[in-house]
């Protein structure tokens, strides 16, 4: 196996059996600190993976399409506002330009124990137990699904869950996004093995008249990992919620959907009171850690706030994201 491969085809990737590098926005930091080492395979130059295909009843997004290109795509904005909003707000403008749709789904955890070259972490193979669980998990999970207590970083993963999107993965064919992340019980940030690669994202048909909402609760205005982030898809007809999808991030080691909130909303009037009642269900499955109790009211508050945004604004474009 060679330490470095510059892939020209998908077969090159498969044969390399190496960790993938596309935009480099995540892996370069890990290579520098030594948290990640060779072998790596550069996939950025593989042709044919950087297009957006639009059909009447679906859309396809190549794995090497940049996050920015998705956020700025007028037709995607119109059809899939709950995807384009996070694509306009996550990370920094530079990261959105270089970061790819495939890469953003496969980021490694941002946990400060994992990222520090001085700290142990089971995900790095140099610890048996998570030092954050017994240590400092101030920014940690409030839904304790498994061994890792740091929130999963993928806002786009969270958005794709609300669409039941599917992925093309080398050697596996098509699989639901939910399968990429699982239920959080595994000690992994995603289920792909080295040499496996997402090649495309498949968006099903958008619902007629659907509206989107996306909010991230941070201490700063922009460019910060969220304490909580919420993605909402909403269809309201004659004042009644016909479809509700609520994805949540920043709170568990995988992004997931708040199905209890969705069920409570569908068929009910799209009123503040109904939204408040549904938002209260957002923490039904929560299991806070000692230092993350504070996130409980934030989860409810942000779900409510994002539902209101989807109902009252709903578009897929932030005016200033040039």
């Amino acid at each position: 196996m060679s330490a470095y491969t510059r892939a020209k085809t998908i077969e090159d990737v498969t044969q390399s059996g190496a960790e993938l590098r596309a935009g480099g926005t995540d892996i370069q930091e890990r290579l520098r600190s030594g948290v990640t080492s060779l072998p790596i395979v550069d996939v950025a130059a593989i042709p044919g993976l950087d297009g957006v295909e639009l059909h009447d009843d679906r859309a396809g997004i190549g794995a090497l399409v940049s996050i920015r290109a998705v956020g700025a795509h007028p037709e995607l904005q119109r059809r899939y506002p709950a995807l384009t909003l996070p694509a306009q707000l996550l990370a920094t403008p530079q990261a959105r330009l270089r970061g790819t749709m495939g890469g953003v789904l496969c980021q490694r955890t941002r946990c400060w124990y994992y990222r520090s070259r001085h700290m142990p972490c089971p995900k790095k193979g140099n610890a048996e137990r998570c030092p954050s669980r017994a240590g400092n998990h101030h920014f940690g999970v409030v839904f304790d699904f498994g061994p890792c207590v740091y929130p999963h970083p993928s806002s786009i993963g969270c958005a794709l869950l609300t669409y039941d999107a599917e992925l093309s993965v080398t050697g596996r064919g098509r699989m639901p996004v939910a399968e990429l992340y699982g239920d959080g019980s595994a000690l992994r940030d995603h289920s792909l093995d080295p040499g496996e690669m997402i090649t495309a994202i498949h968006m099903p048909a958008a619902a007629a008249g659907e509206r989107g909402g996306y909010q991230r609760l941070m201490s700063r205005a922009l460019a910060e990992w969220p304490l909580v982030e919420v993605v909402v898809r909403l269809v309201v007809e004659d004042g009644v919620v016909r479809l509700a999808r609520v994805g949540i991030g920043g709170v568990a080691n995988v992004p997931f959907r708040l199905t209890e909130v969705e069920e409570a909303l569908e068929g009910e009037a799209a009123t503040d009171a109904e939204f408040e009642a549904a938002a209260k269900l957002a923490t039904t499955r929560a299991k806070p850690l000692p230092q993350t109790q504070y996130k409980l009211p934030m989860v409810e508050a942000l779900v409510l706030s994002t539902l209101l945004q989807a109902r009252d604004e709903g578009g897929g474009d932030l005016d200033f994201a040039m």
Binding site: G24, T25, Q28, D42, A44, A91, T92, A95, R98
Partner: peptide, 25 residues
């Protein structure tokens, strides 16, 4: 780590943080 932007350069006309931009790119 791509957070502060001090190393921002233009590659093919668009800004990128050079600290996270693989030299191979």
């Amino acid at each position: 780590a791509g957070v502060c932007g001090a190393c921002t350069v233009m590659i093919d006309g668009m800004p990128a943080t050079a600290c996270t931009l693989p030299a191979c790119a």
